[in-house]
Design a protein around this nucleic acid. Structure first.
Length: 396
RNA sequence: GGGUAGGUUGAGCAGGUGGUGAGCUCCGCUGACUGUAGAUCAGCCGUCUUCGACUGUGGGGGUUCGAUUCCCUCCCUGCCCA
């Protein structure tokens, strides 16, 4: 099979509603996968090592996760994708029966920094665990993902940190990403698994256009927009999305913006027309003591919470807010108690997934840009909450 | 009572046998975190008018140009012997 022809798709995607409004391309849809239906726009919690850190599958269902992301690179070196395959595949291994998307290891090309070398054939990693040399190719990345049995596999790509790279470096990495994308398509065979291609191109509009055309021209099941989880400004991100998404306007496939997950990033990108997201941010930030609330965020390690009897977020239905006070969570963090990680992660993921749910209903109800104005003004998840919140306490 | 080892910034320590002790780890305070080498990392953590300055090695006294260091004395703590 060549890179330009493919059999029937493992997934289906339909757009159910499009926001009516000036300057918005927001849409709500439904993604059908071998392990169930995903309503979009959706946020995928990240479970790198076949676990969303600190949570079990029951917790995940409770916070409302309908699909999670797991990681090709990490699972291939530990415990090994062959082992997972022998043990019944990733879903069975981790006891998660809803959809899984596996990232290709492309991001580790960036995140592992000096532990890797890139050439046309692929990437040579030095294992972050024991230093072993690992030859990673597009074909191998696909083989791993097929062994894992995720619902959606992703091409191996070569992201480059936009702000730290020359135009030439970005252009080369992008062109290589396109060649690797074709190799992934040729290698991919599993009929019950979808394959997404990845657009790169840094912050350069013309490179992004070129990359969008190249990737959208191939028979992928979905289109990823990569390379934007770095240190660009929100304006730069929006500019890239406003270049890429209009070129996909007539394209029936889902659009997935890789690696962004702050509430404002999500809102902006949905507005720009993106359907799928993943990010480590809400979970990592939770483990480090920062809890997202509609007014902003609370750092539960701050001394002011030690005597605060209120829940983290009034009205939140998560495991944390249902039963525990800010004072209790603040205590758990100080005492280095493991429960802090679970409760905080449950809250931030509940917050994020509830946020996405409210975006979906706004789009479906035809009130999208307007009904989100409050949220936009509230700066959810940003650092402005402290003062507002504190003011209320003092005046009480 | 005798002997002995000690008393260093919230805690625990390092160092210092005459030439400016603010060094470490906890604790504490604050910030960061975006396709997870992250239950991590960074800054602050004696005082002040903070790119600097001042004070500080149990108390008091002595020797000295100069003492945390040497001498005397007192207080406190651990251990050993009576």
């Amino acid at each position: 099979m060549s890179a330009t022809e493919r059999g029937s798709s493992a997934i289906g995607f339909e757009v159910l509603a499009t926001a009516e409004g000036e300057g918005t391309r927001a849409r709500a849809g439904r993604l059908q996968t071998p392990h169930g239906i995903v309503e979009t726009p959706i946020f995928m919690p990240v479970g790198t090592n076949a676990t969303v850190k600190a949570l079990d599958p029951d917790d995940l269902r409770e916070v409302g996760a309908s699909i999670i992301l797991s990681n090709t690179y990490h699972l291939s070196i530990r415990p090994g994708h062959e082992r997972i395959e022998r043990l019944g595949g990733l879903h069975h291994f981790m006891s998660w029966d809803r959809p899984i998307l596996t990232d290709s290891g492309g991001f580790q090309v960036v995140s592992l920094g000096d532990l890797r070398r890139i050439d046309e054939e692929g990437v040579t990693f030095r294992s972050h665990l024991d230093g072993t040399l690992l030859d990673y190719t597009p074909e191998y990345a696909i083989a791993i993902q097929e062994a894992l049995g995720s619902d959606i596999a992703v091409c191996l790509d070569q992201p480059v940190p936009p702000s730290a790279s020359s135009r030439r470096e970005v252009a080369e990495a992008t062109a290589r990403t396109h060649r690797w994308a074709e190799r992934c398509l040729v290698a991919h065979q599993r009929p019950d698994q979808a394959l997404f291609g990845i657009i790169q191109g840094g912050l350069e509009a013309d490179l992004r256009r070129e990359s969008t055309a190249a990737i959208a021209g191939l028979p992928f099941d979905g289109i990823c927009i990569g390379g934007l989880a770095g240190d660009e400004t929100p304006q730069q991100r929006r500019a890239v999305l406003d270049v890429v998404v209009p070129l996909l306007a007539a394209d029936p496939r889902p659009r997935y913006l890789m690696g962004l997950g702050s509430p404002m990033d999500l809102l902006d990108a949905v507005d720009a027309g993106v359907d799928m997201f993943d990010s480590v941010l809400p979970a990592r930030v939770a483990r480090n003591g920062t809890l997202w609330v509609p007014d902003g965020r609370l750092n539960l390690r701050n001394a002011r919470f030690l005597d605060d009897p209120r829940p983290v977020q009034e009205g939140c239905t998560c495991r944390l807010c249902r039963s525990f006070s800010r004072a209790y969570l603040a205590h758990l963090f100080r005492a280095d108690e493991l429960l802090a990680f679970r409760l905080a992660t449950c809250h931030n993921l509940t917050f994020t997934l509830d946020f996405m749910a409210s975006i979906r209903s706004a789009i479906r109800a035809g009130t999208f840009p307007e009904s989100m104005r409050t949220l936009r003004a509230s700066r959810a998840g940003t650092n402005s909450a402290e003062s507002a919140d504190e003011g209320r306490v003092n005046s009480a």
